[in-house]
């Protein structure tokens, strides 16, 4: 009998709060979330529901106050600073809302940067970066700097950077927040395809119901907890939005 493969993403009873002024704000109140299989997943919820905090914990950008955080077999809560840094470099790929490319580096240099930080041979990195950019439709733009690229192109460069070490998990924090609808749609489709063809787990935080329709499953957060989880199988954006709002109203 083949033992079941470990979950791609696991959060168990995770709590996180922040100091704010004279008090504390609780972002996550003992959240539980499991993703077993590769695919494209969305996390939705109103402002202050803990979406971004959740993503930060999954990306090793922050530590939980308590609970377990496991990403692709990496137990993050007990990792040292150096181990988390290595995890962010090789174990996960992060795509930010504001692209966060280095403005003085070309597209290909931006993609190579995690490999340079890891001390890999430049020739090997360059070949890999070129390949990734070509697959994302930027074969002729690899020597352009970010200020010469459109928003959509910059975000594709950011995706290529996230894919450099072929991590099992990609995290995207509102990746289309600064893009127009056409570019956004193109990007969601791209992420969906990457998740399918590379058998990756892509977790995206989004406000857009249209984005969630590209996903396999949606997790709806409210007040630091998962209020609802449902599969997006054949649901359109409008219905998806209604479902999410019903969930939030029911949660009070």
């Amino acid at each position: 009998m083949v033992p079941p493969s470990p979950p791609r993403v696991l959060l168990h009873d995770v709590r996180k709060s922040y100091a704010s002024g004279r008090g504390r704000v609780t972002a996550l109140r003992g959240i539980d979330l499991v993703i077993d299989e590769p695919g494209f997943y969305a996390i939705m919820g109103p402002s202050g529901s803990g979406k971004s905090t959740l993503l930060h914990l999954l990306g090793g950008l922050d530590r939980p106050d308590s609970g377990r955080v496991c990403v692709a077999e990496h137990q993050l809560e007990g990792m040292s600073e150096a181990e988390l840094t290595t995890f962010r470099r090789r174990g996960v790929g992060i795509v930010f809302q504001q692209f966060n490319l280095i403005p003085t580096l070309s597209a290909i240099d931006n993609v190579m940067l995690p490999g340079v930080l890891d001390g890999r041979p430049r020739q090997e990195l360059r070949a890999r970066a070129r390949d990734l950019l070509a697959r994302l439709g930027l074969a002729n733009r690899d020597h352009h700097r970010p200020d010469a690229l459109s928003g959509g192109e910059q975000q594709r460069v950011a995706i290529a950077r996230a894919l450099l070490f072929a991590p099992p998990v990609i995290l995207a924090d509102e990746p289309t927040g600064n893009l127009d609808m056409a570019s956004s749609d193109l990007l969601w489709t791209m992420l969906e395809q990457i998740a399918a063809t590379e058998r990756l787990t892509v977790v995206m935080v989004t406000h857009e119901p249209a984005a969630a329709t590209h996903c396999r499953r949606v997790f709806v957060l409210r007040d630091g907890l998962v209020a609802d989880t449902f599969d997006v199988d054949g649901i359109d954006a409008g219905e998806l939005a209604h479902r999410a709002q019903r969930t939030l109203r029911a949660a009070g």
């Binding site: 990306g59 150096a82 840094t85 992060i94 930010f96 490319l101 280095i102 930080l117």
Partner: peptide, 16 residues
């Protein structure tokens, strides 16, 4: 600072 934070986010160490 923001750029340095990005570089840290994608895996640069403090020593680097």
């Amino acid at each position: 600072e923001r750029l340095m934070a990005i570089v840290r986010a994608i895996g640069a160490t403090r020593g680097q």
